[in-house]
Every structure is written in structure tokens, then in C-alpha cells.
Amino acid sequence: MFQVQHGAALYTHLAGAAVVSVILFFALTLVPTKLRRPLIMAVTFAAGLFYALEFFWPVSGPESDQKNFLTSYIKPFSDITTVLQSFALGLGVYSLVSIHMRKVARTQSGWAYSLVLIVSMIVMVIAHIGKEYIKSPWVHQLNEFAYSGLMKSLDATMFSIIAFYIVSAAYRAFRIRSTEATILLVSAGIIMLGQVAIGQAITNAIPNEGLTANLRVENMANWILKKVNSPAIMAIDFGLGVGGLATALRLWLSLERGSYFEEEL
């Protein structure tokens, strides 16, 4: 049934699929309230089971190409979930546009900014999608201005602004108030010195061999990062991994009576 079609046959098939879609969609609206929750649970379980089975089911084949009966469906399935998620972007855009359109329409305070937002959004869409279809140079120039000129700089600048905030945060937070704060401060200080040439220069005179090497600041910094940091982070990670797995299990098996499954459907 699922065969590739071309030309007129493609269009008849598309039309057929559209009709089936409408019917299926309508059928879904008829699902009685009692069956809705079980249906959701079943879909959730099935989607998870697909990945779980693919992972757990014994595999066969040559060493470099081990598969089971589900492996070849992984890519199409993940492709289609990607596509579906992209369609959901419309929800966000609708939310954003409707809030700002309302502001502009009612000329509420700050409406001009909302107008800027909407106009720049439209410009970006024209430039960035347009450059794929329209060969005329103005689209490319518009794309250069909107994307390379503004968007990229805004991204990089907003990212780099953290440098300023990190200074004010360090200045305020690194005080010798308690044992814990002092440990935090000392550890951060050693790492900072060990990372840059000028900090390393402090202990450059100490030979980098034998016992004295331990006194060199970059060696101390490396030791903290590798020998203290990594087991501590690993321990946190173990907890997070188990926590994530447990949450996944609860969601998958619909054990959770969390907020989004509680209400009447």
C-alpha cells in the first residue's frame, strides 16, 4: 500500500490521504471520555516500548552491523518526530505574535517595541527563507543584514555579557563568610591562577619534577579538576542518572499522577 507515487498518481494519493486524515481526525473526536486516558497511556507506552525493545532485543549480524527487527525503523521514526516537533513551533509563534499584535492594536504602552518585534520577525523570515528560493541579490543582502549583521552579533554579545556578570557575581559571592564559602573561594582561586600564564608564572621557579612539582599552581589546579572534581561530579551524576531513569519510568508507565494527567479529559 505504501508505495512511492509520482505525477498524477501522487496527487490522487495525497488527496486520498487527506480524506483519510479528516476521517481519522473526526473519529478521534468521537472517542468517549472514558477511553481517552487509556488511549493516551497506550500511545505513550508504545512509543517508549519501541525504543526500549530496540535496545534490549538480542541483535545479530556481523560485528559492525548488529541489528534486530526494529533497528531499521529507528531513523524514520526519529525523523518523523523531528518533523512533528517543527510543526509545533507554530504554537509558539502564535502565542508571541498574538500578544504583541494585541499590544500594537490597542496602542498599549510599549506598543512600538512590539511592532519592532513583529516587523523584524517578518523581515527575517523573508530574508532567510527567501534566500533559498529567490535568486535576486537584494534577498541575500537583506539576509546578510538581518542574519550576519544583527542576529549573529546579538547572539555573540548576549553570550559575552556573561563575562561582566561573572565578575560581579565573583566579587559579591566569594567572601570568607563560612567554611563552605571559603572552600569555594580557595578552590576557585587556585583554578583561576593555574589556568592562565600569568598565574602559572608565580610558581614557574619551582622545578616541575619530583615532590616539588606538587607545589606548582597549574599542577594543583589540574589535580583539583581531575582528582577532586571528577569523583564529586561523578557522584552527582549517578544520582541524576537514577533520578532521570526513575522519572522516565514513571512517565512511560503512566504511574505519575502529576499535574498534566490529573484533570478530567
Partner: peptide, 24 residues
């Protein structure tokens, strides 16, 4: 660029020291 990197680290360390002296 690593000169900028070095001196900005030095600045932060100095500021932290100043902050602590001020607090004491």
C-alpha cells in the same frame, strides 16, 4: 588573546581580595 585572558583573571582575583578586605 591569552594576555587579555591572563590579566582579566588577575583583575578578578584582585577584586575578590579587595572585597574580602573591605568586608573584614
Amino acid at each position: 588573546a591569552s594576555a587579555s585572558l591572563s590579566y582579566s583573571h588577575l583583575l578578578i582575583i584582585l577584586l575578590i581580595i579587595l572585597g574580602n578586605v573591605g568586608m573584614i
